Simulated scan of single mutants.
Amino acid sequence: MRPTPSLSLQTLLALDAATCTAMAGLLTLAAEPIAQLTQLPPHLLFGAGLALLPVAGFMALQARRTCVPRWAARVVIWGNGLWVAISLLLPLTRLVTPNATGWAFLVLQALAVAGLALAEARALHRNDGIIRSGRNGETA
């Protein structure tokens, strides 16, 4: 059995930035129709979409680097984890009450984000294209 090729951290960050941008566009441009379909509050969807824009920009900038700083990779991974947690905690704590379609929307996008975070964490662990932070700054 051949090992599966692993994507580089830069490739994963670029993919994360692209999916983040797509979700931002979907949530900001179609907040009302998605809200009607999912029973999620339209202002929450719109605000989440707006919040994703600078995140996507940060990811895209890091993806273009030859060596991604370890801190930047960790910010993305932890941010993705936070997104997943909030996506699931909002309905579990009844701060929002989605219908079945809304639950599916929240769970499926949370699984996709969790998958990206896991792949990014693995790439970080492999140390491919990472700048390690030292006491006096960053070294290659």
Rank of each mutant, 00 (worst) to 15 (best):
T21C: 08
L108E: 05
T66L: 07
P42F: 09
A72Y: 00
T139A: 13
T139Y: 12
G79N: 06
V55G: 06
I131W: 12
L89Y: 04
V113Y: 00
Q62P: 06
N99C: 10
L44A: 09
L45G: 05
G129C: 08
A85T: 09
G134C: 11
L89A: 15
E120C: 04
D16G: 07
L124W: 01
E138K: 15
P91S: 10
R122I: 15
I77G: 01
L53R: 06
H125W: 12
A51N: 03
A63C: 02
P3G: 05
A35K: 04
V76S: 04
S133I: 14
R94H: 14
T101C: 08
N99A: 13
C20N: 09
L45N: 03
E32W: 07
R132N: 09
R65N: 03
T66F: 04
T101M: 11
T139V: 15
V107G: 04
L116M: 07
R74A: 05
H125A: 13
C20F: 00
V75L: 11
S8Q: 13
L50F: 02
Q10P: 01
R65Q: 06
A100T: 12
I86M: 09
L27R: 06
R70E: 05
R65K: 10
L15V: 10
A119Q: 05
P98V: 13
P41H: 11
P69I: 04
A17P: 03
Q109R: 02
H125D: 15
G81L: 01
L7Q: 08
R65M: 05
L108F: 01
P98G: 11
V76C: 09
L26D: 06
L89N: 09
H43S: 15
Q10D: 07
R94Q: 15
L124E: 09
L37K: 13
L116C: 04
M59A: 14
R70V: 14
A35C: 07
T139D: 11
T11K: 02
S6C: 13
A73D: 01
M59C: 14
N127T: 13
H43E: 15
L90G: 03
L106M: 11
E32A: 08
F58G: 13
P3K: 11
A140L: 14
I77H: 02
R132D: 08
C20S: 14
A114W: 05
G115N: 08
E120A: 03
A117H: 05
R135I: 10
G57H: 03
I86L: 11
A104M: 05
L92R: 06
A104F: 03
T101W: 14
T66Q: 10
E32N: 09
